[in-house]
Amino acid sequence: MSATRPTTGAPLPRLVATDLDGTLVRSDGAVSEYTATVLRRLDELDVPVIFVTGRPLRWTEVVFEHVGSHGLAIVSNGALVWDVAAGLARAERAMAPAETLAVADRLRAACPGTAYATETVAGFGMEPGFMRHVDDDEIPRAPLAELATQPLLKLLALHPELDPDEFLARADRAVGDTVTVTRSSTTALLEISAAGVTKASTLAQVAADLGVAAEEVIAFGDMPNDLPMLTWAGTSYAMADAHPQVTACAGNVAPGHDEDGVARVLAGVFGL
């Protein structure tokens, strides 16, 4: 496996897709000046860089200055495509309230003690049993039935005791046939989207709109929610400290996120 251009003489990628946390963004939450410079160079070369993240919109906006003139971001694991320049949603792939509540009931029956939170374009809500949050006093707390009265971009499920991978496995058995269940946290926190909604399925739609094929995409990620995207893209990189499943799936390994791994690979691939 390599952290440089995968195949000598191969055509250059026409689109870059990168996860944020644990991938493009450093541990301190910043995008380094080196990485920002590489992204600007790619924008000058007319190569779109699309942020493809599990983050909700409100946590992605802080890095929008780095998406360049193309200005697209895929957030909430593919449930929302955001046009940064226009400041509006280009596509939403949400779960209906009845579907959300049915899935939550099945998962809570399979994993007693599960608590939920909800993500919409408008914001975030939590059940009383959900983890405390940095903006706790400003976030609505109520039973899920009161929070899920409109279509959700993402349902978050938290278990206080289960191992994260075990929680994911149980959830897949309980509800995985009706929705998409994944995770990106080191805690037992699951991210649930409508059936068929993944980073890959939404990225494929965006790429098609841009006239870009899967084999022309280079993608970077580090956690299980990146697996569909890394499998779909023609060239894929796991970060050096990625989840073992991601490392096994990706075709290549990049330096870690605190070493500007994404930018260093891209600089090598594009000869920057």
Results as ranks from 00 to 15, higher is better:
Ala233Cys: 06
Pro128Tyr: 11
Gln205Pro: 00
Thr202Val: 13
Ile50Leu: 09
Gly54Trp: 00
Val38Asp: 08
Leu152Met: 06
Thr178Met: 01
Glu119Trp: 01
Leu80Trp: 00
Phe220Ile: 05
Ser27Asp: 14
Ala240Leu: 11
Thr120Trp: 01
Ala3His: 11
Ala200Arg: 02
Pro160Val: 02
Pro11Met: 09
Gly129Phe: 07
Thr120Gln: 02
Leu190Tyr: 08
Thr100Leu: 05
Val67Cys: 06
Ala115Ser: 15
Ile192Ala: 01
Asp83Asn: 15
Met229Cys: 09
Ala267Ile: 01
Arg183Met: 11
His70Val: 08
Ala3Phe: 06
Ala169Thr: 15
Leu88Cys: 13
Glu92Thr: 12
Ala94Gly: 00
Gly78Val: 01
Asn225Val: 02
Ser27Lys: 07
Asp43Phe: 12
Thr23Asn: 08
Lys199Asp: 00
Val38Cys: 07
Ala145His: 12
Ser69Phe: 03
Val84Ala: 13
Arg170Glu: 12
Thr18Glu: 02
Lys199Glu: 00
Trp232His: 02
Val246Asp: 12
Pro244Gly: 09
Gly87Trp: 08
Ala242Phe: 04
Ala248Ile: 10
Thr149Arg: 05
Ala174Asp: 12
Asn252Tyr: 09
Leu57Thr: 07
Phe270Cys: 05
Ala94Trp: 00
Leu203Thr: 09
Leu203Ala: 04
Thr60Val: 05
Phe220Val: 06
Val134Ala: 15
Ile50Ser: 03
Ala238Leu: 10
Leu155His: 07
Asp135Tyr: 13
Met126Ile: 04
Ala110Leu: 09
Arg40Leu: 07
Pro6Asn: 03
Pro143Ala: 09
Ala117Lys: 04
Cys249Trp: 00
Thr180Trp: 06
Val265Asn: 03
Ala208Thr: 14
Ala102Glu: 14
Thr8His: 06
Ile50Thr: 08
Glu146Gly: 04
Ala200Thr: 05
Ser185Gln: 09
Ala102Asp: 14
Pro11Leu: 09
Met223Ile: 02
Arg55Pro: 01
Pro255Val: 10
Ala94Cys: 08
Pro140Arg: 15
Leu266Tyr: 02
Arg55Phe: 00
Pro48Cys: 10
Ala250Lys: 03
Gly271His: 11
Pro6Tyr: 02
Val47Gly: 11
Gly196Tyr: 04
Thr8Pro: 07
Leu210Ala: 15
Asn252Ser: 09
Thr149Asn: 00
Ala102Phe: 02
Ala145Gly: 07
Asp163Asn: 15
Ala157Val: 12
Leu147Gln: 12
Arg108Cys: 12
Gly234Ser: 11
Ala79Phe: 01
Glu161Gly: 01
Pro48Ile: 11
Arg183Asp: 12
Ala171Leu: 05
Leu57Ile: 04
Gly113Asp: 07
Val175Cys: 14
Thr180Phe: 05
Asp177Gln: 14
Val262Cys: 02
Val134Pro: 09
Ala145Asn: 09
Thr23His: 06
Asp209Gly: 14
